[in-house]
Computed example of a mutant assay.
Amino acid sequence: MKTVMMTATGGADVLAVMDLPEPSPGPGEVLVDIAASGVNFMDIGVRQGMSWLDMPLPRALGVEGAGRVAALGEGVTDFAVGQRVAWVYAPGSYAERAVIPAASLVPLPDNIDDRTAASLMMQGLTASHFTTDFYPVQPGDVALVHAAAGGLGQLLTQIIKLRGGTVIGRVSSAAKVDVAKAAGADHVIVDTKGNFVEEVLRLTHGEGVHVVYDGSGPATFHGSLASLRRSGTFCWFGPVLGGPGQIDIMSLPRSIKLGYAVFSDHIHTPDLLRARASRLFDWIREGALKVAPATTFPLADAAKAHLAMESRTTVGKLLLIP
């Protein structure tokens, strides 16, 4: 069974495809034939040694995907052999097959294809958490979305629009403007150096936005602070690009609210996972949410996928296809 493993911490060159013994599901587990695996920034963080440090090397990468049940472990009654499923946060998903806890799986309806599901689980559930729980967007709210042409940025934009908000999207190049607008962004700012505040304030008549969604690292942190109106909410996420350093809480301006959003707090039980995923699937069926076609790579090209993501030149989701 081919699996992408990291042989050490470091750059993309530490990734290697290895042949491992065929896995068998234990109690409460399911063996899945993987059709598509999602590539996420957290995978780069693992590769660089930011997390999973307690797991021995070589270490299997990937946490998200979609496929079909191949075998059931003892006690699993929620799924059947041959059933299509998707998952998020199941380590070892860069592979032809994986053993996954049944509690981490959601059933896939017929109208959701494997690649759409693998593109949606991590980013869709994250976008859902950010916009309906961490800061429940209300009609008339104005949101600043960084990396608005990325997979997460496009989903954030669409859900904000579903909830009646206005989106100011920030992108890193003019080539990404049309992608952000196609997702529903009302205004798009092209910026690579963190010089976006003046335009945000102009667009909001000097008031600032109600909420900012920022996973772009420390380069945008202070600009995002300056873009918020009084009592605005700062949704900070994405540890791979680094944090802003120490913060003096008494220096935070305009009574803003600042938090680090983690989607696992949104779906901390299997029932919530399936309910939130089902809502995403319903939005897709109704045409209210669209997932842009993914950029795909063969499983053997996982290193190329990582380099493409790190280049910040891609739009939408990146997938590995076994």
Rank of each mutant, 00 (worst) to 15 (best):
M1K: 12
K2W: 07
M6C: 01
T7Y: 06
G10Y: 02
G11C: 01
L20P: 01
L20T: 15
L20G: 12
E22I: 04
E22G: 13
P23L: 08
G26Q: 03
D33P: 09
S37C: 10
N40V: 02
N40C: 04
F41R: 08
F41D: 09
D43T: 02
G45L: 00
M50P: 10
G65F: 08
R68A: 14
A71Q: 09
E74G: 13
T77C: 04
D78C: 01
A80I: 02
W87S: 08
V88T: 15
A90L: 05
A90G: 00
S93W: 14
S93C: 08
Y94T: 01
I100M: 14
P101G: 13
S104P: 06
S104V: 15
L105Q: 10
L105E: 10
P107M: 10
L108M: 13
P109C: 07
N111D: 04
D113P: 03
R115A: 02
R115L: 08
S119Y: 13
L120P: 00
M121E: 12
M122H: 15
M122N: 15
Q123G: 05
A127H: 07
S128F: 14
H129I: 00
T132K: 03
F134Y: 11
P136A: 08
P136I: 03
V142R: 05
L144A: 04
A148N: 09
G151E: 02
G151K: 01
G153A: 00
L155F: 07
L156W: 13
R163H: 11
G165L: 04
T166N: 14
G169C: 11
R170T: 13
A175M: 00
A175C: 02
A175R: 07
V179G: 00
A180E: 10
A182G: 07
N195S: 15
V197Q: 01
E199R: 15
V200Q: 10
R202G: 12
L203K: 13
H205Q: 12
G206N: 15
V209E: 01
V209S: 04
H210T: 05
G217I: 11
F221D: 02
G223P: 02
S224G: 06
L228S: 09
R230P: 01
G232S: 11
T233M: 06
F234I: 05
C235F: 01
P239S: 09
V240L: 13
G242F: 08
G245H: 00
I249L: 11
L252D: 04
S255I: 06
S255Q: 11
S255H: 15
Y260R: 12
A261L: 06
V262G: 05
F263A: 08
S264N: 11
D265A: 15
H266C: 00
I267G: 08
H268R: 08
H268Y: 13
T269H: 02
T269Y: 01
P270K: 04
D271N: 03
R274L: 03
S278P: 05
S278V: 09
D282C: 02
I284C: 09
L289P: 00
K290D: 05
T295N: 04
D301K: 08
A302F: 12
L307K: 12
L307T: 13
T313G: 11
T314D: 06
G316V: 01
L318R: 07
I321K: 14
P322C: 14
